[in-house]
Structures are given as C-alpha cells and as structure tokens.
Design a protein around this nucleic acid. Structure first.
Lengths: 315, 315
DNA sequence: ACCGACTGATACAAAGCGTGTATAAGAAAC
DNA sequence: GTTTCTTATACACGCTTTGTATCAGTCGGT
C-alpha cells in the first residue's frame, strides 16, 4: 500500500467526484481514476460504486476512508515530530554541573535555551567534578559544566567563562586593609582548598600559581564546596584562592582581594562525550556558543566574570 | 512520506547494517542507502549515525522506528480488513423474513452462510410482508424472504423454494377421510385467509386458484400468521389453503389434504434492493444460490418442500 | 425526443523515481 | 601493510506515475 494512493482515495471519497478530487489534488483526472483502480486491485476490494454519473462509497471504502485518514494523520504527525526531534526541538537533556557553575554561567544559558527550545526537557544535576566526569563518560549526563582542564580523552570541551582568582582572607588578617595582595605574601599562610579531584583543574591551577610565586601552599583543611572553604576562611582557619565570581558570596569575616599580576586563568568549560552529539546536544551547544560568543576570539560578554572592581581585565 | 521507505528504514534500524538489511529486503545495498538518505532528507532529520564501519540510531531514528512499526502494522491490518470487507467476509447483514420462511427455508441458508462467512454479523427480523418490503425499500433490511410475487420495481428477487398448497380442514369435516380433495369441493366452505398485503403473493395465489376452480372464496376471518389461520381451522371456523411446509405444524383438530391437480405454485423468494449489492449481500446471495441450487433449472434439493406424501411432485 | 453538458474510463506518450551493477573510499582486523 | 568489511557514489535501465487526447454513457433542458 502507498500513502500517496491513500491521499488520492481520501480526496475522491470526500468529494465523491473524480474530477473535483483531481482538481483538489492538483492533478489530471485520468491518472486519479487509474490510481484508485490500482488501489482497488491491490486491496482486492471494490471501494466505490461508480456509475457514469455518480460515485458512492462501498462498505469497504467507508472503512478505508476512516483508516486512511487515521494513517495519514499518524504519518504526518510522525514526520513532524521526527523532524523536530532531529532538529533538537524536542527531547531531553541531562545537564550536570559543579555548584559554582550555578552562580553566573548556567542561568543565562538555561534561559536562552529554554526560550529557543521550549520542547526540550532539562534534567539538572549538581554534582562534584569526579561524579560529573563519570556520569558524562557513561552517558548518564549529556553535558556538564566544570573547571578545565581535565584528563579524559573521550570527553570534549569548550571554555565558557574565564575568571581571575581572588584571595579570600579572614577579616582579621593583617593584609585585609591592602587594596590588593601579592601571592608571595601568602607563602606562610595556612591554606584551605578543595580536594584534588581527578578532573578538576581548579585545585591544580591554584597550586601551580603558588609554585610560580615561589612556595608550596600548606593545606591545613580541605572542603569540596568552595562556599565551605570560604566559611572556613571566615572562621580564621586559613586563606584561599577562589574564582572571582565567588565574591558574590559575601560572608561576614571574609575579605576578597585582587591578586597582583594574576591574569584571568581559571576556565569553566562545557563538556560532552566525544563522538556524534545528539540533535538536542548540538542545539544546546549551539546556544552555549551563542550566549558565550565563542568564536569571537576571547570569550567575553554576558557570562564573562570580571575580577573585583574591574581588576585586571579590559583593554 | 512513503510506506516502502519506512519498511526499508525499519529493516536497517533492526539490522543496524545496510548490507544485511538489503539482503533481508531482497534488494541491493546501494539503493537501500539511497532510500534511507532520501528519507532523512525528506524528514529533515538524521536517522542514523554512520561511520564507514558502523550504524547507530539517532534519537529521531529511535522515535521513527517505533512510529514506523506502528504505521506499517496499521497499514497492513487496514489492507487486510478492507480486503475482507470487500469480499463480504466481514460485515453486517440485516435479514428480514416472514414467519413461514423460518420453517424450512431459512435454517439451511443461515447455517451455510455462517460456516462460510463467520465474520458477518447477522441481524434477523421476523416481520409481516408489508413492513418487510418497506424495510427493504429504505435499506433498514438488506435482504428478505417472502412469498412472490410482489409489485415493487426497485426490488429484485429470486425464487428460493416452490411448494404446493395443501388444504387444511377441521378434523370434523366430512372430507377429512378422503385421501385428497378437489378444490371445487371447497367452494361452499367458509375460508380463513391471511390479509391481502400489498406485496404478499400468497393470498392472491389462493384466491386465483379458487377462481380457476370456479368459485370465489368466502372469507369469514383473516389472520396474518398462517399458524393462526390453522388454529382457526382447528376451531372449526372454516377451511384454508396453506403451503405444504405448514404441515409440520401438526395441530389437534386439523387435517391436511393434498389438493387434486394443484401443481406446486407458491414461491418463496429472496428479495433485495436493486442496484449495487454490498459485498456481504453478494456473498449472502451466493450462498443462497448454492444452497437452493438455482441455476440447475427447477429449484430442488434441500429446501425443496414436497407436498404431503410425495403428492404431486416427481418426474 | 433530441442535443449538449458533465463525468468517468481508456489509450498512449513522456517524465520521474526506484533499483541494479560497478566501483570508490574509509575503517578495522590480521 | 594488506585484506576484508561496510557504506557511499555514479550511471543506466525499467517500471510507475502522470499528462494529453479522446471515448462512452447519463442526465437535464428545450
């Protein structure tokens, strides 16, 4: 059977007139008569009672009319929804992110994506970097946001925001009155840092900076949430370095200081499994690209996170 | 969209291998690749992730696989049921009949039809001839059984059984000891007859016979059911003529007598509306024809109703 | 009762689409 | 590195579909 023939049949059955049906179908009448005849032969059933003057449906024809309409509608809807799924307009996307991504990076992306692709169901999971990388690896999460770099070849990533580090000091610290601090002045301080996750570039970046400043940070306490490290700083346990966007976490007993000569160095990235991205994922990555304007050279704009008081950025 | 392409797609989606799918479809691999590509273009969606070495379904493909299977099954079932309806294998048939038809004519026909066409729902209505003809005329009944002839041009008929009349006399009647009676000997008797329906040939046939025998029957009572006329005869109200098959209505106080020189003359017929018979009706008429063996010249066989004691029939 | 208009069927030709064959191109396996 | 496996491309052939021209039968009007 053939959907085209069914369309023809429905037209004839509705018009009960081959000429008018042919007109409606934008075709000549003889081929229409021929196709209906073919359909009847194919089905082994008479569909119309024809006289030279009038056309009526048989029982078989009446039945086929109902079924054909249903089939055609089903086919059309299928084509439409398959198309939309193919374009990423409809679907489901599991997004994983480290808590800090929820601060400034994720909201504008989710807003833009939700507007452009309202048919996509988003599943959001806030997890630590290790779990996130594992979830990305085995497909439980389609796309993730975490600090770069990481060391898993099967994943691909693009930077989404680049920030400077700022130093977080207890309010009682002798340096808390300075406008900015040099990293080397913190060489003797006790440090509070996040643990060294397999994939999280954050901790490594901090340690690397300290080494470049000529010292190995003495870590007296670890806490996986940066908010917690800041709380510990507030409690006078030590000092730490955090991405500039953490400054919006204003906490009594903590002061943030730009770090002298420290250019924006820590990148938060969007990460996905290498290979054939799904249409929804492609669509999402497209929106991420638009929002963060990657491709215009250095990322900047909405999710660009400036250092404290416009510190070290800007032309 | 195109059901053939969907079949191809399902094969590829199930095999996840173009060559094997092509083999299963009994076709060459290149046209299959081409058709899948066409389908993807038509739907505006990628259906497979292809490498030079492997094939995987996309989300859109997974969705289409489900829908395509459903569409194909639906199409196939539609074709099948339309075919069967077209052959009269499935459907509904309203059969009307006068009560006497239920005696010997209808049962073998219904049995044969039910065996051959178990999918057809039969609606049986026992009505008087006038209602039956009206119901046939306006389509409430598809086919009817009643005594011929009738006078409605829009209906068509074939005789189904031909019977002789027998005389029904009260057991107390002086002629009840004779082996047979001549019609003329009943000329003075009071008659009990069925009413003169518009279409019922029965009453007219009886009156005509009487006239040929030289008298006008004196009707003292009418009753539309022939069983009732026989009851009235049993009650001594009068005499009557009934089709031979009515003899199986053995009732105390009534004797049946063959009528001298009266050949089988009353025909019960199958009647339907002229024009295009439905497939079910065609099928039914075919069975009626088979069962009554019309076309073998004179009707005889199963529904042939012989006169009493083999009376006036036979070669 | 005849004529014209309407409608569906048939005949034939052209175009488009589907399918087969031959072959290329790329990836995995040995 | 060579072989094998698998999909994609190129091209040709044939069937199916479609259009044009025309016929045949029926209905309505004069």
């Amino acid at each position: 059977m053939n959907l085209q023939r069914l369309r023809y049949f429905v037209a004839v059955a509705e018009e009960l007139n081959f000429s008018r049906a042919a007109e409606r179908l934008c075709m000549a009448q003889p081929p229409l008569s021929y196709q209906i005849k073919r359909l009847e032969e194919e089905l082994g059933a008479q569909l119309f009672y024809r006289t030279k003057r009038s056309v009526r449906l048989t029982d078989a024809g009446r039945l086929l009319l109902v079924e054909a309409r249903s089939l055609l509608v089903h086919a059309e809807q299928t084509a439409s929804v398959v198309h939309r799924v193919g374009q990423g307009e409809v679907g489901r996307l599991a997004i994983g992110f480290v808590p800090s991504a929820a601060n400034r990076v994720l909201p504008p992306i989710l807003r833009a994506f939700g507007e452009r692709f309202p048919g996509v169901e988003l599943l959001l999971r806030e997890v630590d970097p290790d779990r996130l990388l594992r979830a990305l690896g085995d497909g439980r999460v389609d796309v993730g946001f975490l600090y770069l770099p990481f060391k898993i070849d099967s994943l691909e990533s693009r930077p989404v925001s680049r920030e400077a580090f700022v130093a977080a000091l207890p309010g009682t610290h002798p340096l808390s009155n300075e406008p900015r601090v040099a990293l080397s002045t913190l060489s003797g301080e006790p440090f509070v840092l996040t643990p060294r996750y397999q994939g999280a570039g954050l901790r490594d970046k901090i340690v690397e900076h300290c080494r470049q400043a000529g010292f190995e940070p003495r870590v007296v306490q670890e806490a996986w949430l940066m908010q917690t490290t800041v709380s510990l700083v507030a409690g006078g346990i030590g000092v730490t370095l955090v991405p500039a966007s953490l400054q919006n976490l204003q906490r009594a007993g903590v002061v943030y200081k730009n770090v002298e000569g420290l250019s924006p160095e820590i990148e938060l990235g969007v990460v996905w499994r290498r290979g054939d991205p799904s249409a929804v994922l492609k669509a999402f990555l497209g929106v991420v690209g638009d929002v963060t304007r990657w491709g215009e050279g250095e990322p900047e704009g909405e999710v660009r996170v400036p250092a404290l008081r416009g510190g070290s950025s800007g032309p």
